[in-house]
Simulated assay, not measured.
Amino acid sequence: MTDERTPRERVVEAADELFYARGVQAVGMDAVREAAGVPLKRIYAMFGSKEDLLVTVLQQRRETWDAGLAAAGDRATTPREQILAIFDFLDDWFHEPTFRGCAFINTFGEVGPASAPAADVVREQKQAFRDHVARLVAEAGAPARLAPQIAILAEGAQTTAAISGDTSTARHARAAAETLLDAAGG
């Protein structure tokens, strides 16, 4: 069986898995080279630095997150159900054996302002998520003040599940979101 992924795809996938499992700072480029099976010189030709590779990994994670969120929402028929589907999406993710929390939160906590490009990608992803929730809240006819509350429930569920290992946090956050929607008439 041949590996049909390009060297770039192999490097990004290997770096993503390693950064997510071990942390960005704990993973050297030699580990990425070994996992990807791509020479270090070639990796640096594709990505000028580890930071460039990290930014690419985060951008790919954002695409994966957005696609998963969209797929969960596509199964819902109303804006309210789409809001609640966010928590169903999280619940499925929390049950994956490789779940280690939000890669964006983890990365920001680890490299934060020391890597402005990575921090920018994290901030953009978090803002895009808040915007997505705000759009759904508006479509549900609920007050705008509900959007940041629901977004915080989702973010908090990710962090709590990662730290506690309690996969039920998404279901608890979903119940809280339902309560908020009911109270707001949404």
Rank of each mutant, 00 (worst) to 15 (best):
R33I: 03
L54E: 03
R8A: 05
Q82V: 11
E51I: 03
A72M: 14
V32Q: 00
F47W: 04
D88E: 06
A31N: 08
L146K: 06
L153W: 02
Q127G: 15
D91L: 13
V32Y: 03
I43D: 00
T56L: 07
Y20V: 03
A15L: 01
R61H: 09
I86Q: 14
A147S: 05
D92C: 12
D120T: 13
Y20M: 00
A70C: 09
I83D: 01
L53K: 00
G68F: 13
W93Y: 07
D131G: 04
G141H: 13
G73K: 15
R33W: 10
A138W: 07
W93C: 01
K50G: 06
I152R: 15
W65L: 12
L153I: 05
G37H: 06
Y20E: 04
R8G: 00
M29H: 02
P39C: 02
D91T: 01
P143W: 04
S49I: 02
A151R: 07
L146V: 03
G68V: 11
R62N: 10
V24W: 01
E110C: 05
D120N: 13
E96I: 03
H132Q: 15
R10N: 04
G109E: 11
A31L: 12
N106G: 14
L53H: 00
P39L: 02
A144Q: 15
D88M: 03
L90V: 05
A138R: 06
F104E: 05
I152D: 15
R100N: 15
V133F: 09
W93I: 02
L153D: 03
N106M: 12
A154M: 08
L53S: 02
V122Q: 11
E139R: 12
V38F: 04
A119C: 15
D91N: 09
S49T: 06
G28K: 04
R75G: 15
I150Y: 04
V32W: 01
A71Y: 03
E139T: 08
L69S: 07
L84A: 04
F89D: 05
V11S: 00
V27T: 01
F108G: 13
K50P: 02
Y20H: 02
T64A: 10
